[in-house]
Amino acid sequence: MEITLKINGVEKKLNVEPRTLLAHAIRDAGLTGTHIGCDSSSCGVCTVVLDGKTAVKSCTMFAVMAEGHEITTIEGMAQGGKLHPLQQAFYDQHGLQCGYCTPGMIMAAHVLLQHNPNPTEEEIRFGLSGNLCRCTGYQNIVKAVQQAAQMLQQPAGAAADD
């Protein structure tokens, strides 16, 4: 069946089966930053943002269900040629090693900060507990989210490169 998905602000017409997972549809549309790491909805490397404020595991949603929603993936985070503060902060704080969990982690953190702009370390660990990372031990990811929270609270334009 033909569906239209709005991904990162761009409408894409896709030919899918009803059983096509959103994760596969996104990746087949050329946006391979969204990864897949399990079959049990456990790892969160497939996390994308729906309608700005909700994070979903795109492996646990059929592509057809995403029609009518705004999907944001890691490729849609940098704006105007500038990295999103979360991307900058993951880079600054060594919040990634192999990078496989990173897109999902950044999308989950993005939503976390929408609901809690100034989280404590414990709240960050809690909020990211639907996303696995096998490399970093999470400590630098937590630091990255803290840095991003600070950057986002500074007035626009004042976000200094750390």
């Binding site: 969160g44 996390t47 729906l50 994070a55 595991k57 949603m61 976390l112 990211l128 507990s129 639907g130």
Partner: peptide, 9 residues
């Protein structure tokens, strides 16, 4: 219940 991302759905 579940995890923070699953709870969004």
């Amino acid at each position: 219940v579940a995890d923070p991302i699953v709870r969004f759905r």
